[in-house]
Amino acid sequence: MGLNDILRQAQIMQKKMTQMQEDLKTRTVEASSGGGMVTVTASGAREILSLSIDPAVVDPQDVDMLQDLILAAVNEALKKATQMAEEEMGQLTGGMKIPGMF
Results as ranks from 00 to 15, higher is better:
Thr41Asp: 01
Glu22Met: 09
Gly95Cys: 09
Gly35Ile: 10
Asn4Tyr: 01
Ala10Ser: 14
Gln91Glu: 14
Ser52Gly: 08
Gly2Phe: 07
Gly95Lys: 01
Ile6Pro: 02
Met101Glu: 09
Ile70Gly: 01
Lys79Pro: 00
Gln9Asp: 15
Leu24Glu: 00
Met89Gly: 00
Arg46Gln: 14
Ile48Cys: 06
Arg27Ser: 06
Met84Gly: 12
Gly100Val: 06
Leu71Val: 14
Leu3Phe: 11
Gly94His: 04
Ser43Asn: 04
Ser50Leu: 05
Glu47His: 03
Asn75Gln: 15
Val63Ser: 07
Ser32Ile: 04
Glu76Val: 09
Gly100Lys: 04
Ile70Gln: 10
Pro60Glu: 10
Ala45Met: 03
Val58Trp: 05
Leu69Glu: 13
Gly44Ser: 02
Met20Lys: 05
Met84Tyr: 09
Arg27Asp: 04
Asp68Thr: 12
Asp23Lys: 09
Ala10Met: 13
Gln11Thr: 12
Asp62Pro: 02
Glu87Pro: 00
Ala85Asn: 04
Asp23His: 07
Ala45Gln: 02
Met13Pro: 07
Leu24Met: 06
Gly36Cys: 10
Met84Lys: 08
Lys79Ser: 15
Gln61His: 10
Thr93Cys: 01
Ala42Arg: 00
Met17Cys: 05
Asp62Ala: 08
Val74Lys: 01
Ile48Glu: 04
Glu47Pro: 00
Leu24Trp: 00
Asp68Glu: 15
Gln83Leu: 07
Gly44Ala: 05
Gln14Tyr: 03
Met37Trp: 03
Ala31Met: 10
Gly2Ile: 09
Leu71His: 10
Ile48Asp: 07
Glu86Arg: 12
Lys79Val: 13
Thr28Leu: 05
Ala31Val: 09
Gln91Val: 01
Pro60Met: 07
Val63Trp: 03
Lys79Glu: 15
Ser50Trp: 04
Leu78His: 07
Gln61Val: 12
Leu49Phe: 07
Gly35Leu: 05
Val29Leu: 01
Asp62Glu: 09
Gln21Lys: 13
Ser43Ala: 08
Gly44Leu: 01
Arg46Val: 09
Leu7His: 01
Val58Ser: 11
Glu30Leu: 04
Met1Val: 11
Leu49Asp: 11
Glu76Ile: 04
Ala73Asp: 08
Ser33Glu: 02
Ile98Arg: 07
Lys15Thr: 15
Lys25Trp: 00
Val40Asn: 00
Met101Phe: 15
Ile53Arg: 01
Lys80Trp: 02
Gln61Trp: 03
Leu92Pro: 00
Ile53Ser: 03
Ala42Val: 06
Thr18Tyr: 01
Gly35His: 05
Asn75Leu: 11
Val40Leu: 03
Leu7Trp: 03
Gln83Thr: 13
Asp64Trp: 01
Leu69Ser: 13
Met96Thr: 12
Thr26Asn: 10
Met96His: 02
Glu47Cys: 02
Leu69Gln: 12
Lys97Arg: 14
Glu87Ser: 14
Ala42Ile: 06
Thr28Lys: 08
Val29Asp: 00
Leu78Asp: 02
Val63Asn: 04
Pro60Lys: 07
Gly100Arg: 06
Gln67Pro: 08
Leu7Phe: 11
Ile48Leu: 08
Ala42Gln: 02
Thr26Cys: 03
Met101Ser: 14
Val29Met: 01
Gly100Trp: 03
Met17Asn: 04
Leu7Cys: 06
Arg27Gln: 14
Gly36Thr: 10
Arg46His: 06
Asp64Gln: 13
Met84Asp: 10
Thr93Phe: 00
Val29Gly: 00
Gly90Glu: 09
